[in-house]
Simulated scan of single mutants.
Amino acid sequence: MASLNVCSAVLVLFLTCGAAMASKENDQIIKENNCETKMGLPCVLEAFTCIFETGSISNKCCGELVGLGKVCHSALVKRTLENPLFKDLSPATIIAKSIQTWNNCLALVDSPSPSAEGYMIA
């Protein structure tokens, strides 16, 4: 029975250290890449609402999100999920919405607009 308690304590310690290391890793990525300075507040709020609540993101803010970069985007989403305020959210659902938002914005930014195609043909 004592070995079960020791194993449980070691497991809890391992998981706690892993979470702390993940948090430090995300903070380090965010700091090293100046992630928090690459998007304007209105677009940060749009992206947040789109991923963590229910909403959409404008073309302009999609451009800012893609300009932020995938590394920053992922680190910021993961760090937000670590906040106790969001403990009731499903991490799998948020990560899926985050990836979907990223992919939609990337496709939008990478595809030329119909008016640009018209100029290319002419």
Rank of each mutant, 00 (worst) to 15 (best):
N83H: 04
S115I: 12
I51L: 06
P91D: 10
N59C: 08
L85C: 07
A2E: 12
L11V: 12
A75W: 02
N83F: 00
L15C: 09
T93S: 15
D27E: 13
K60D: 13
G40S: 09
K70P: 01
S8G: 11
L15V: 09
K31C: 05
S111R: 13
K70C: 00
M21N: 04
A22V: 00
T80I: 03
A2Q: 06
L13V: 10
I99K: 10
E53T: 07
R79D: 10
S8T: 00
L65G: 15
G67W: 06
S58E: 04
A9M: 08
L15M: 11
I95P: 05
K24G: 01
P114Q: 04
S90Y: 03
N34M: 05
S111F: 00
C43A: 05
A20T: 02
A75R: 01
C61N: 13
A9N: 06
A92M: 15
A92N: 14
S58I: 02
S3Y: 13
C7M: 08
C7A: 09
G63A: 11
N34C: 02
S111G: 06
A96H: 09
K97L: 10
A96F: 05
L13Y: 12
L76F: 04
C17A: 04
L76C: 06
F52K: 08
A47T: 15
L11G: 01
T16Q: 08
L108E: 13
N33S: 06
K60Y: 09
C50F: 00
C105N: 14
A19E: 11
C50G: 00
L76R: 05
S8R: 09
L41G: 09
T101E: 02
E36C: 07
S56H: 10
K78Q: 07
S98L: 09
T16M: 03
E53Y: 03
S74I: 03
V66Q: 14
P91V: 13
S98D: 13
C105V: 10
L13R: 06
C35E: 00
I95S: 12
E82G: 10
N26R: 05
T16C: 08
S58Y: 07
L68M: 08
Q28I: 03
P91M: 06
A2M: 05
S8W: 06
C17W: 01
N34L: 12
N34T: 02
C72Y: 06
A22S: 10
V6T: 06
D27A: 05
L41S: 11
V109S: 04
F86A: 11
T54H: 11
G18R: 04
T80V: 02
D88H: 15
K87I: 15
I30P: 07
G40A: 07
A19M: 05
P42G: 01
E36L: 14
K24H: 08
H73S: 11
W102A: 06
L15R: 05
V109G: 10
C35I: 07
P91Y: 02
F52T: 08
L41W: 05
I57D: 04
T49L: 00
S111Q: 13
A75S: 04
L11N: 03
I57R: 04
V44G: 04
L15K: 04
R79I: 03
T54K: 13
L76I: 06
C17N: 02
I51C: 01
C61M: 12
S3C: 10
C43S: 12
F14E: 12
A20L: 08
E32K: 15
R79Y: 00
C43H: 07
L45Q: 12
S8V: 01
S113N: 09
I29H: 07
L76Y: 04
L45R: 10
